[in-house]
Design a protein around this nucleic acid. Structure first.
Lengths: 209, 209
DNA sequence: CCGTAATTTCAGAAATTTGTGAAATTATAG
DNA sequence: CTATAATTTCACAAATTTCTGAAATTACGG
C-alpha cells in the first residue's frame, strides 16, 4: 500500500469498520479510497494504491456497484471503467439507508408477517407471536417514518435534525391549537382547523423557545 | 434444534441476519430465543433448544452481555444463571443504538478529528481533508440529534415518529411564534399555522411500555 | 476444607470467507 | 476478422472465524 499517511489512516480505518458491517476489508478500503479521491479512478489505479490483486479489485468494485455506492463513468478516448462516489454526502447516506433497508429490514418484516399469519399451537407460540407483533409494529413505525423523511431535501433535513428534541414543542403548539391532549394522536380533526370559531377554554401558548 | 416451527423460523432468520451485522449466527439465534421466551432461560436450556455445544452458548451469552442486550438474573434456590431480554422494545432499540454508536461511530469521529488536525502536504491530502471534514460534520449532526432524541420517552417518541415529514411544519409555527429562528430558517414566510391540527395519522394510540 | 454443580477458558478442528493467478470473456480499434 | 486491452470468472490457496470437547476455574452448600 502506497498512500499519503493521512489518506492511509482513513482507508485502513474504513477497512476495519467495513468488516464490522457485512462488508469486507477490501471493499471498505476501495470505497474509502474512492471517497477521498478528487478524480475518478480505474481498477488499475486502485490496484496500484492498495496493493490488492486485480481480480480482487474487480470483485470489490462489483460489490460496491451492487450496493449502488459507486458510480461508473468513462473518460473520453479511454475505454477503461472509472469509478467515483457521489459528491453529496447526504446522497451517500440515503443510498446506504436504502440498501440496508432493502437487504435487512424488508426481509425481516416479510418474515414477521408470514409468521404472524400462522395459528399458534401452544402457549409458547402464542407468547412468541405477541413478541413478534411488537417487533413488527416497531419496525413498521420506523420504516414509515423513514419513508416519509428521506425525501426531505438535505438542507431542510439538517435544520430539522439540529432542532433535536425541541421538536417536541410541536405538541404543545398542537395541543394549544386543537384543545386535544398529548395522548390522543388520532387524525381526529379532518376538515376545518380547530383554531377558527373555537372560543372555549384555550390553553396558553408554549412558553420559552 | 428442537423448537416449535413458528419459533424456529424466527430464530433461524435472526441467525442469518446476525451474520450480516457483526454478530455471528450462534449469537443471533441465542438472542432470538431469549427474545421470544416468556421466562428466563439458563445456558443448559439454550443448549437443549438450539443444539449448540455448552461452551459455545457460554461464549454467546458473554457476547450478548458485552452488548448489554441481555440481562442476567437468578431464581430463588437455583444457582444457575438465567437470562432475559428487556420486555420493552424501545429499550432494546436504544441499547442497540447506544452500543453501535460506541463501537462504530465514536471511533470514527475520533479518527476523523485526529486526521483533520494534521497539516496536509499535497493537493491530494488537502482534498481528502475537505472530504473528511464533510463526513465529520454530517456524523456529528446525526449524533447530536441522536443524543438529544434518545432521551424522549417512548410513547412521545412514537407520536413524533408517526408525524413523519409533517414535522417540517414546525418551522412555520416557530417562525410565527418567535418572528425569527436561531438560524437561517425558512424565510419563505409561511402562512399562519392554521392547519396544524391535522398532524398525525389515525393509528392505534401509542402503546406505552 | 471437600465435593459437586455451574461456568469459563482454550487449543485446535471444522467451516466459512477472502484473496489470488490463470484462463475465459468482452469490447474495441484497425 | 484479428489483435490487443480491459474486465470477469473461477478453482483453489490463504486467512479468518466459529465451534467443540476437555480441562481449568469459580461458587457454594455442607
Amino acid at each position: 500500500m502506497n498512500l499519503p499517511p493521512l489518506i492511509q489512516t482513513f482507508v485502513l480505518h474504513f477497512g476495519e469498520m467495513g468488516s464490522r458491517w457485512g462488508i469486507n476489508r477490501t471493499v471498505g478500503q476501495i470505497y474509502a479510497l474512492l471517497f477521498l479521491s478528487p478524480d475518478p479512478l480505474n481498477a488499475e489505479q486502485i490496484v496500484q494504491q492498495l496493493g490488492f490483486s486485480r481480480s480482487n479489485v474487480s470483485m470489490g468494485l462489483k460489490e460496491l456497484q451492487a450496493w449502488n455506492l459507486v458510480r461508473l463513468q468513462h473518460l473520453p478516448d479511454d475505454r477503461r471503467d472509472y469509478f467515483t462516489t457521489p459528491g453529496d454526502l447526504w446522497e451517500i447516506l440515503r443510498t446506504l439507508a436504502e440498501e440496508r433497508k432493502k437487504r435487512e429490514v424488508d426481509p425481516t418484516l416479510t418474515m414477521l408477517r408470514e409468521v404472524l399469519m400462522q395459528t399458534p399451537s401452544s402457549d409458547a407460540e402464542r407468547h412468541a407471536q405477541t413478541r413478534m407483533q411488537d417487533m413488527h409494529d416497531l419496525i413498521e413505525l420506523l420504516t414509515r417514518w423513514y419513508d416519509d423523511i428521506h425525501r426531505i431535501e438535505p438542507s431542510r433535513l439538517a435544520q430539522l435534525l439540529s432542532l433535536g428534541a425541541k421538536v417536541q414543542k410541536i405538541f404543545e403548539v398542537k395541543d394549544w391549537l386543537t384543545g386535544g391532549g398529548p395522548e390522543r394522536t388520532g387524525r381526529s380533526v379532518p376538515a376545518a382547523p380547530a383554531d377558527s370559531g373555537d372560543t372555549t377554554d384555550r390553553r396558553r401558548p408554549p412558553s420559552g423557545s
